[in-house]
Design a protein around this nucleic acid. Structure first.
Length: 257
DNA sequence: TCGATGTTAGTTCTGCCAAT
DNA sequence: ATTGGCAGAACTAACATCGA
């Protein structure tokens, strides 16, 4: 669908969105809009910015909607029943609040405060969960101020009770840990082919190397991937240096005489 | 507490295309 | 002809939430 000639009015959008929010939960409405913008051809990054969602959430949304259809537009983890009202927290001597600036911990009798910037999430968790473990805050107060569910809050507090902050609270995600197409066998073949061809003066272009690696290992990788690995293995320059090194070594007596 | 599901952060892979 | 930057897809694993 070509929308380039369509005029979009920010005023009308504000008006209509406001009206729609009387009926739709904000999150659901944003998910519907994200999917519609995607269908109309908008760039995913721009879609994410427009609906104020992380780009990765938009990615996940599009994947599940295209797989499961309309039902996937709502967060299926959410219960259909309305939330149960939570009893007000019991008064404590320490009060923790969370705003745009960060967290404020009020304690003592003279109104002393500890300010934790919004960017210091681990510090906030350390303080709040320590107070929870010490019995100075309730579970629901702690979970609410940290913006996590009670069950997860309980789990983090339990971990912090038996582990240091680095083990209990620091995010350890590292992403994909191993290559899934170019493994040790393919790398060995790549290095072998590149070295042998560089020394003998044969073609060392990524096209040829990809052909050889695929032939020997049935990897099915592209020339671009071969170039990517050549660069990340630090092999980009050995095409020039390796033949010179071999010539030098030929003229030098071997260690064994 | 646990399994299912969604989210997030990171790496690898690949097509496109400008630069060399 | 070949390389390498860029963007986005594909993938992995940890984090987080939810309901039973």
């Amino acid at each position: 669908m070509d929308c380039r000639q369509v005029t979009f009015s920010p005023e009308k959008s504000r008006e209509r969105t406001h009206k729609a929010l009387q009926v739709f939960p904000r999150k659901l409405l944003m998910r519907v809009l994200a999917f519609a913008l995607h269908l109309l051809g908008a760039n995913r990054k721009e879609v994410a910015a427009l609906v104020e969602m992380p780009e990765e959430s938009v990615k996940t949304l599009l994947r599940v909607v295209l797989r499961d259809g309309f039902s996937a537009l709502r967060d299926r983890r959410l219960s259909a029943t309305p939330p149960i009202a939570v009893a007000p927290p019991s008064p404590t001597q320490i009060i923790v609040s969370h705003g745009h600036e960060g967290w404020i911990v009020e304690f003592g009798t003279q109104g002393e405060t500890l300010n934790i910037p919004a960017t210091h999430r681990i510090q906030a968790r350390t303080v709040v969960l320590s107070l929870l473990n010490a019995g100075a805050l309730t579970l629901s107060q702690s979970a609410s101020v940290l913006g996590i569910c009670d069950a997860h809050c309980r789990e983090l507090a339990r971990k912090l009770a038996s582990h240091d902050v680095a083990d209990a609270l620091v995010d350890k995600r590292e992403g994909q840990k191993q290559d899934f197409r170019v493994g040790p066998e393919q790398k060995a073949e790549l290095i072998q082919q590149l070295a042998a061809r560089a020394i003998t003066g044969h073609d060392t272009s990524s096209e040829v190397l990809a052909e050889q690696v695929n032939e020997q290992t049935e990897a099915g990788v592209s020339a671009r991937t071969i170039r990517w690995h050549i660069r990340h293995l630090g092999l980009s320059d050995i095409r020039q240096s390796l033949p010179q090194l071999v010539e030098t070594l030929k003229k030098t007596p071997t260690d064994r005489g």
